[in-house]
Amino acid sequence: MGRIETLTDRLETDRRLLTLSPRDNVAVAKEAIPAGETFLVSGREIIAAVRIGLGHKVALRPIRAGEKVLKYGVPIGSATADIAVGDHVHLHNIRSDYTPTHSLDAARADHIGERNGEGR
């Protein structure tokens, strides 16, 4: 927050991450980044805690809970938790300022659990 982004910052972000507007606090993955891999975000070495899929977002700057998430230079929702540089930014830490988002994550987790004989 409050820091002006410089050209150096952008050079020091992994080339697989695309920043769409200089105002943005998230970047988009043009290629998937596997879990456990080390990659550069805003000059920092980050170890990917989870796989960052194609089209998914990564925080370029720290984002505090309640703060707007900016992509394309405009707000795309609000953070629901504090987000650190390099964190995956998705349903678990941001939400719409308009209508809730629907996903099949819970159903899928159950289904995979059943297939693995874990039951519900």
Partner: peptide
């Protein structure tokens, strides 16, 4: 209209593909 229905124009596959909110899908 969508607020009353309880869902945005947003499918589960949108989220799998990295979209997190209707505003983000909208901008695209």
């Amino acid at each position: 209209y969508y607020a009353e229905l309880g869902y945005g124009s947003f499918a589960a596959g949108n989220a799998d593909g990295g979209l997190s909110t209707i505003e983000e899908k909208s901008m695209g």
